[in-house]
């Protein structure tokens, strides 16, 4: 048996895909010892999911969470030797496993994933506000904003930010009714901030993520968008800006 065959058999045995353990392990003692490795594999991934989804875990309770996480872990092996980004598709696994009335928990999980991503980044340094203040008003349309490191956004199909806050405070929330909530999730000096955005702020943030000038906002740049821009700066969601090099000539009918 060469090294590739040996590792293939081990992989099958760990994933429970082989009809029997690898031939070289075919004793009762070996099968029991193989279970140590099998259990460690699954349990370590369950622990990784618990660390990434603490509020989902809190809401579902230990046993239900572990059952769902085990199912996910068996079906989704890590693709890297670093588990920091393991579990991105866990909300999808929840969606297929939970009943309709609990589908808001999948949205909660989508939020938690983004909270954990934002938590990996350092709080941004100060936005160059003085540079912004020096701009002439007609230049605002040429602004291309840069999001701060780690900033995430979510169009949530349930208003889960309040439920998240309650769970974070150790309280069980009432299940929210469906409703769209546009959220920005961003690193702060201590922890992570979650803020619901107005349509104008969402439009400004979308331009930043897409690297497009504010002039590209549907319907054009308004005072409400400028207010939203200042609000995003204050939150620490934006790291900086540049000006589009050349104004495009726009033909309007």
């Amino acid at each position: 048996m060469n090294l590739r065959e040996y590792q293939a058999r081990w992989a099958q045995a760990l994933l429970g895909e082989g009809p029997s353990p690898p031939a070289m392990l075919d004793t009762e003692q070996a099968r029991n010892r193989l279970d140590i490795y099998r259990n460690h594999y699954v349990l370590s991934l369950v622990e990784a999911l618990q660390a990434t989804y603490p509020q989902v875990w809190r809401y579902l309770g230990q046993q239900r969470f572990v059952d769902l996480a085990r199912r996910h872990a068996i079906q989704h092996s890590p693709r890297s030797g670093c588990l920091t980004h393991y579990g991105e598709t866990f909300p999808d696994s929840l969606r297929t496993a939970l009943k309709e009335e609990e589908s808001w928990v999948c949205t909660l999980a989508e939020l938690e994933w983004r909270v954990e991503r934002a938590a990996l980044a350092l709080a941004p340094t100060a936005f160059p506000f003085a540079d912004l203040a020096r701009l002439a008003e007609e230049d605002y349309a040429r602004i291309i904003l840069t999001p701060a490191d780690g900033v995430q956004s979510l169009i949530a199909s349930y208003p889960v930010a309040t439920a998240y806050d309650r769970l974070f405070a150790g309280q069980l929330p009432d299940p929210p009714a469906p409703g769209i909530e546009c959220l920005v999730i961003y690193p702060q000096r201590e922890g992570v901030g979650i803020t619901q955005l107005s349509p104008q702020a969402w439009a400004v943030l979308a331009m930043a993520f897409e690297g497009r000038p504010l002039d590209d906002i549907d319907g054009g740049l308004t005072d409400l968008h400028c207010d939203a821009l200042l609000m995003l700066v204050q939150l620490g969601v934006l790291a900086g800006f540049r000006l589009q090099a050349h104004a495009r000539s726009v033909v309007r009918d």
């Binding site: 048996m1 060469n2 090294l3 040996y6 590792q7 293939a8 081990w10 992989a11 760990l14 994933l15 490795y37 460690h40 594999y41 370590s44 991934l45 990784a48 092996s77 890590p78 693709r79 890297s80 030797g81 588990l83």
Partner: peptide, 25 residues
């Protein structure tokens, strides 16, 4: 040790077979 096969990582330090092939590898 080894930890992955076909891109799947097992998050564990798995035992190698102590063969000449494995040593060279």
């Amino acid at each position: 040790s080894w930890s992955s096969f076909n891109g799947q990582h097992f998050n564990d330090l798995l035992p190698l077979p102590y063969t000449e092939e494995a040593l060279t590898h």
